[in-house]
Amino acid sequence: MAMRDSLPAVLPATGIAALARRIAGLPLGVSFAGLWLVAMVVIALGAEFMLPYSITAFDLKARLMPPVLFGGGIAHPLGTDELGRDVFSRLLLSIRMSLLIAFFGTLIATTLGTALGFLAAHFRGRLESVILMAIDFQASMPFMIIALSVLAFFGNCLPLFIALMGFHSWERYARISRGLTLAANEQGYAAAVRQLGAGPGRIYGLHILPNIASTLIVSMTLTFPEIILLESGLSFLGLGVQPPLTSLGNMVGYGREYITRAPWIMLAPAGVIVLTTLSISLLGDWLRDRLDPTLR
């Protein structure tokens, strides 16, 4: 049937040739975005195997060396800082830290929000009003301010910081899952399955979740770059990831002091932030068109 053939998942994958053909069919921007993100994930997973230098190894003879194409040597492709430490090595670890925080933050936001949305839709009544109020509150306050006050009150450590990032935009998922569950309960398949005698676990886990997954995934492509920006902003201000750990925002904040003499310290991580968020947004836009035409 024509309908079936148009579903990409049904097509059998015949090796690398088919994969290459499919990639060639993608828009240019999307392919670049995909490649960039694959590179970032590889770096995040295997950073310690790629480090040319330990990030604490300093070489006072090679202080503030410019990157390779701007008069520097191949030994330090992105130059060195004021203690002669390798910028490239530091960048790899920063990428891993920023992606790690964004990944877990997004995961927490999605899980928490979806669960609350399900709870609101399942129990209705007072619980739903409370959750809706919390959604309104979260949406009406800039999260940057909430995050800053929590950091002020609780102090900072990495697990707390990641958990805090997870509270960013949970309300988006709560809204989506509540709305779609209500719709499904009102007229559709969820009511039918419930009527068959299924318990909540089956209804939510096996029926509603798979049906709303594509919308949730598209929203995750919005949350992920937002958390990268938020984390790097806070780290830039010195209120996020704390030394000796390093993240992209940290590096920019630290490189800012050498902006006149060694702008590469700051420009390298800044470029990575922009390219990464840009890539995810591009990929997200593309995914949205493919997966979820109902979402604008």
Binding site: P225, L229, S232, G233, F236, G249, V252, G253, R256, I259, M266, A270, I273, V274, T277, L278, S281
Partner: peptide, 9 residues
């Protein structure tokens, strides 16, 4: 996609 601190710098 550009964070404000990057633009500022």
């Amino acid at each position: 996609t550009m964070p404000s601190f990057v633009l500022a710098l």
